[in-house]
Nucleic acid binder design. Structure first.
Lengths: 345, 345
DNA sequence: CGAGCAGATGTTGACGTAAACATTCCCTCG
DNA sequence: CGAGGGAATGTTTACGTCAACATCTGCTCG
C-alpha cells in the first residue's frame, strides 16, 4: 500500500496524487487534510502530513482556482506608483487584502494613454482576479472607454463620482476648504492657489473648494497658478507669486508643490510665514521637517485603501453592493508655515 | 450548427466550449484563435472572434496555468512599501515584468518578524508564481530561516551577498565613499555620520565605507550617530551634532535623515553649508527642493528593479543562473548643502 | 488520374483539485 | 442480535485549456 512512486516530471512538483500514493490513502483524503477538514482520523492525518513534508508538496493554486472558480486574488490598476499618496494607498490595500487572505496583482499603467489603460485592463480581464481596484488620477479613463467585463466587482478610488461603480476617495473639497479657511481665519485678505494639473479630478476638486470658500467669504479670487504636482512646478509657481504684489497666503495643491514654493521664497528672501503663509495638502511623511515645518491637510490614505478592500470584498463574497461615493475626511495639521499677516488689513 | 446554448452557470463566465458551440466549431479552433495561431481560415477566425465578443468570453487563466504549468506571474515580497526606495524599485519591477508579459503578485510583510516573513513566504509557496523577488532590508531573514521550495527561481534585492540566490543591489559602499570623499575634497578635516538602523545591511555598508574612507585618508573617525531612516531620527541626530564642537561636515545615511538634520540646524541657527555641510543618500525626488537643495548620492532604483527581473526571467525561461552579486553604481549629485569649511584647517 | 501532401479542423486526454456521491466499518440501541 | 446511523475513507467526475494525434479537404505533380 505504501509504495513510493517515482517523481513523474522534473519540472512539476508533486501533486495530491503523489502524496496520496506515498501515504497509502486516496487523493480525497489528502485534500481533506490539506484543507484542514475535521473528518480525518488522527493517525491518517499525521501520515499524510508526513508524506507532504517528505515529498515537498505544495498545493497548486491554479488547479484549486479552476475547481473553485475563485482566485482569492484582487487586481490593482494604478497609474504611477511614484506618488506619495498612491504608494500609501497601495500599502494599505495590500495589507488589508492580505489580512483577508487575498493576494494582490499589481498592474502598472506606464503612460496615461487610453491604449495603455486598455492593455492594463486586458491583462486583468484574463480572469485571474475576483475583483479589481482602480486607482485613477486623470480624466482619461472615461466610463465609456473602459470596458470591464460585467459581473466583475470593481471599486474605483478617485474623486469623480460615477454611476457604474462604487467610488471611494479622500474628501478633497473638505480638505481644501479647511486649508483656505485656516488662512482666512489667520487674517489674510485672500488666498492664492497653486493648482494641480488639469487632468486630475482631485486637483479640480481642491481648486473648486478653494474658490468656493473665498467666494463665500466675500473675498477676491486671484487666478490659480497651474502646476503638475512636482516640486519643480511648485518652484516655478513660487517664483511667479513672489513677483506679485500683495501675496500673503498660498494654498498649494500638494506638499511637493508647497515644498517647491518654499524653496522659491527662500531664494527670493521672502520669509515664511512672516511674509507669506503656505499650506500644503497630503501631509507626506517629510512635511514636518520642511523648513519651516509645513502646515498641511492630512489625508488618510490608509483609510481609503482599507475601505476600498472592504467594499470590494463585500461584493465578492456576499454580493453586497455599496452604491454612491464613500468619502474619507481630512484634517488640518498646523505647523510653522502659517501665521497672521504682518500688517493686518 | 450555430445553435445558441444557454449560459450554464450564473457565476462562471462563458468558456471555450460555449464559444465553440456558438460559433459552430470545436474548442480547439477557439483555442487556436485565442492564441493567435495562424492555421485558421480567415472566415472561421472572424466567426469565432464575433462569438467571443457576443458571449463576453475571457480566457480562464487558472485553467491555462494548470495546463501549461506556468503562471506568467512573479511574486514580490517586500518589507514596507512606505519607503521611497522600495516604491521606486517596485515600480521598476512592475513595469519590467509587465513588458515581459508577466504580472506581479505583491506580498506585503507587515512586521519584520520571523513569523510574518514565514507567513508571507507560505503564501507565495502556494505555487502561483514562476519566480520570486525578495526585497530585504533587515538581517532578520537569514538563509537558514527561510525555506523556499527548491527549484523556485529567486532573486534577492539586498546588500548582503549570499550563496544560495543571486543578489542585486545598489553599490552602497561606492556611494558612501563618494559622499565622504566629496566632503574631504572640499577641505573638511573629517566627516560625521548619521547611520541607519543596525538591522539594515545597507546601513552598515554605508557606515563601513564611510569609516574606511576616513581611515584611508588618515582622518579621525568620530562616533556614528544612530538613526532609523526617519526624519525624526535625523532631527534628533542633528540636534546632537549641533552640540558637538568642531562638526563641519555630516554624511547622513539617507535623504530623510538629512532633511531632519537640516531642520535641526535651522532651528539652532547653524548655517548650511556655511557652518556645516550635509550630504544625503538616495536622491529622492524632493531632495533638490530642500533648503538648501541637498547634495546627495543618486541611487538608480530603476536599474535595480529592471535588472532583478531580467535575472529572474533568465532563470525562469532559459534556466540561466546568475551567480554572485550584481551591483548598480551610484553617482554624486552636488547641490547647495555642501561647501568648503569656513576656516580651512 | 491517382498518390501524396499541406493546410484546416476535429477528437481525445491530462493538468491538480474538490464536490458529490458511494462504500466500508464500527458502534448503539431497541 | 440485527437494523440503523454516523464517521472515516474511497470513487467518480468536472472545472477550462491546450498538446498530440486523427481526420478531412482540396490541390499539385509525376
Amino acid at each position: 500500500m505504501t509504495e513510493v512512486l517515482p517523481a513523474r516530471s522534473a519540472s512539476r512538483g508533486p501533486s495530491m496524487g503523489d502524496v496520496a500514493a506515498h501515504a497509502g490513502v486516496s487523493t480525497q483524503t489528502v485534500s481533506r487534510v490539506a484543507n484542514g477538514l475535521q473528518n480525518v482520523e488522527q493517525g491518517t492525518r499525521e501520515r499524510v502530513l508526513a508524506s507532504m513534508r517528505t515529498l515537498g508538496y505544495r498545493p497548486n493554486k491554479a488547479a484549486r482556482a479552476l475547481r473553485l472558480g475563485r482566485f482569492r486574488n484582487i487586481g490593482v490598476i494604478m497609474f504611477t506608483l511614484s506618488s506619495f499618496g498612491n504608494m500609501r494607498t497601495l500599502d494599505a490595500i495590500a495589507v488589508a487584502a492580505a489580512r483577508a487572505g487575498y493576494s494582490i496583482t499589481l498592474v502598472p499603467v506606464e503612460h496615461t494613454t487610453q491604449s495603455d489603460v486598455s492593455v492594463a485592463l486586458a491583462r486583468l480581464i484574463e480572469q485571474a482576479v475576483d475583483g479589481v481596484v482602480i486607482v485613477i488620477e486623470a480624466h482619461i479613463v472615461d466610463k465609456a472607454d473602459v470596458e470591464l467585463p460585467p459581473g466583475l466587482p470593481v471599486v474605483v478610488i478617485d474623486s469623480a463620482e460615477r454611476d457604474d461603480y462604487p467610488v471611494i476617495d479622500t474628501d478633497q473639497m473638505q480638505g481644501a476648504r479647511l486649508a483656505t479657511q485656516h488662512l482666512l481665519d489667520l487674517g489674510h485678505d485672500t488666498v492664492w492657489h497653486v493648482a494641480g494639473p488639469e487632468t486630475s479630478y482631485s486637483a479640480s476638486r481642491r481648486e473648486q473648494a478653494w474658490r468656493d470658500t473665498l467666494v463665500q467669504a466675500g473675498r477676491q479670487v486671484p487666478d490659480a497658478v497651474r502646476g503638475d504636482w512636482s516640486t519643480a512646478s511648485g518652484y516655478a509657481a513660487g517664483l511667479d507669486l513672489s513677483r506679485v504684489a500683495g501675496v500673503t497666503a498660498v494654498f498649494a495643491g500638494n506638499d511637493q508643490m508647497a515644498l517647491g514654493a518654499l524653496r522659491a521664497f527662500h531664494e527670493r528672501g521672502i520669509d515664511v510665514p512672516g511674509d507669506i503663509s503656505v499650506v500644503g495638502f497630503d501631509d507626506m511623511a517629510e512635511a514636518d521637517s520642511f523648513w519651516p515645518p509645513l502646515t498641511t491637510i492630512h489625508q488618510d490614505f490608509d483609510v481609503v485603501g482599507r475601505r476600498s478592500i472592504e467594499i470590494l470584498l463585500a461584493e465578492i463574497e456576499r454580493g453586497e453592493t455599496t452604491p454612491g461615493m464613500v468619502v474619507a475626511p481630512t484634517r488640518l495639521v498646523v505647523r510653522s508655515s502659517t501665521a497672521a499677516p504682518r500688517h493686518v488689513g
